[in-house]
Structure formats: structure tokens, C-alpha cells
Computed example of a mutant assay.
Amino acid sequence: MSKPTTGPFEKTAGWLDWFDGPSRPRFVLPPGSVDAHCHVFGPGAEFPYAPERKYTPCDAGKAQLFALRDHLGFARNVIVQATCHGADNRALVDACLASNGKARGVATVRRSVSDDELRLLHAAGVRGVRFNFVRRLVDFTPKDELMEIATRIQPLGWHVVIYFEAPDLPELWDFFSALPTTVVVDHMGRPDVTRPVDGPEFALFLRFMREHPNVWSKVSCPERLSVSGPPALRGERSAYVDVVPFARRVVETFPDRVLWGTDWPHPNLKGHMPDDGLLVDFIPHIAPTPALQRKLLVDNPMRLYWPEEL
């Protein structure tokens, strides 16, 4: 566990701590790049964590997120509501409002949300809702409630972000296929990277994207998927190499429907806390050409979250 530091990345040490010394990436991001998957946690004294949460993070607020954005070279953020805040989106909304238009949000809402509340979220910068199907993180919300929410947000032009694990895709396929909005899959549906990239499990995910042109995927979180792990030697920049074939396959097959994000501050991660500068250096391994890099980091997130600026 690292100790509290001073400066823009100052934090309070806690059970779920984040890496406080991110390196400068060697990969220079295209101008206008978007970190399309990150979070804010608290601070808990101002934005309390949900009583029903299944993990408790350390505080990681908007000031630290925006400092990291600038340090890494991103222009914008998409802040995704994490399960530790439940359906209380106040921390997310506060960060979006403080960003001067440089952040958009993906909220969690319940069936009881009013139309006025949805409009207020939209005005704050929210452009999607997240449905979480990872059993170790949340208790499943009934599918009829989720479908009702998806139908209600459709007129706002919002999309649905879905988080699930690869073995659950067959069971969830029909529900996902019926969603009336753009659908964004978190972290490629968490494939098992010890299996062949050409194997039947990942082929099913690729077929899901191929058969549903409204489905996008984030090619993020190699630190969650990898078995090989981070670099073993200080100064080495090649990391999470076992994830590369999977993410690169998605990027090259669906270049107009992919997004990338840091996942900062890496909630509920076991084993190690990644260096976010190293994660940025992962990008050219999965998007090897300038054209693919621009689609992944600029064109696609702008089209989804800031279409009024195009």
C-alpha cells in the first residue's frame, strides 16, 4: 500500500489504493484524445458511498482525475458510475459540471427516476446508463426494469453500457439484442485470454458485434484480463501482452465501434495497481496505425459523447 503523497495526485491511502506515480507515456496521444472509461470515488465525506456496496474504495475525486488527464495528455474524459456509489450520481455529476465541458458521464439509474431527473442528468453531461451483470459486484436488476430504463433514455439519445463476463453472454444474448439504443460493452466482455483468440468463446463475442451493428466495445482494462501481467523489469514498457491479440482483433474488425479508457482509479482490482502511463503505451500495440488510433481515441468517442461538436 503506498503512502499519501503531495501534489496533484495527493490522496488518502486505503484498502483500494491507486498508483500515485504515473509515468509519462512514450506514446503521444492524438490531439483531442478521450479517456472514455474512468471513475470518480467520493470524496466520501462529501459524496458518501452506497450502503449496499460490495467494496469500499479510497477517495479518488475529480481533482486527481483531471490532473491525471492532463499528465497523460488526454483532452477529455467519460466518467462511468461505479457500483460503490450505487444510483447516487452526485459525484459523477459534480465532476462533469466542474470539467468545463471536457467530461461526459454514464450514470446508474433506477426505475423510479423521474423524467425531470433524467433531463437534469442530461444537462450535466450524462449521455448513457450502465447495466452491470457481474454477480460478484452487484445483485442483478430485473431485466424488465432495465428494458424500461433503456426505452426511457432512448429519446435523449443516450446509450446503454453493459458489463458482463464472457461465460454469461449466451444467457444474456437475447436481452442485449433487444435493447433499443446503442450498446457499449465494457472491456470486450472480459474474455479469458488464456484461451485462443480464434477459439469459440471469443468468436461468440465477435459474432455478437458482427450481427448487431449498434454494439460497440471498449478495448480497455488489460490489467484486469491479463495473466502475464505488468512488466517484470523496471523501465520495460511492454505489458499485458496476452491481451493484445484480443483487443487488436476487435479494433481491426470494428474500427468505427471501439473505445478506450484507463479505468482509473482501477476499482476492486486485485494483485497490482497499474501505472496509467504504461496503460497508454499499450494503445499502439492494439491500434497499430495512426488512422486506427485516431478512430479509437478521438473520432469514435466524440461521435458518441460530443456529436454536437462535429
Rank of each mutant, 00 (worst) to 15 (best):
D70N: 13
D70L: 13
D70A: 14
D70S: 13
H71T: 10
H71P: 07
L72I: 08
G73K: 10
G73P: 09
G73V: 07
G73R: 07
G73M: 10
F74M: 06
F74W: 04
A75Q: 12
A75V: 04
R76M: 03
N77E: 11
N77L: 12
N77R: 08
I79G: 01
I79Q: 02
V80N: 03
V80T: 15
V80R: 02
V80G: 04
Q81T: 08
Q81C: 11
Q81S: 14
Q81W: 07
A82E: 10
T83Y: 03
T83P: 07
T83G: 06
T83M: 10
H85D: 15
H85L: 15
H85Q: 15
H85P: 11
H85K: 12
G86F: 12
G86V: 06
A87H: 11
A87W: 03
A87G: 00
A87C: 13
A87T: 12
D88Y: 10
D88L: 13
D88Q: 14
N89C: 11
N89S: 11
R90C: 12
R90I: 09
A91P: 04
A91I: 04
L92R: 02
L92A: 06
L92N: 03
L92E: 03
V93L: 14
V93P: 00
A95R: 02
A95M: 05
A95L: 05
C96P: 02
C96W: 01
C96Y: 02
C96F: 04
L97Y: 00
L97D: 10
L97C: 11
L97H: 01
L97V: 08
L97W: 00
A98D: 08
A98M: 04
A98I: 02
A98Q: 10
A98N: 05
S99A: 10
S99C: 11
S99T: 05
N100I: 00
N100F: 06
N100T: 01
N100C: 05
N100H: 09
G101E: 02
G101I: 05
K102C: 06
K102P: 00
K102E: 09
K102I: 00
A103G: 06
A103D: 03
A103I: 06
R104Q: 08
R104F: 01
R104N: 03
R104K: 14
G105Q: 07
G105N: 09
V106D: 01
A107C: 10
A107V: 07
T108A: 15
T108D: 01
T108R: 15
T108L: 14
V109P: 01
V109Q: 08
V109W: 04
V109H: 08
R110M: 13
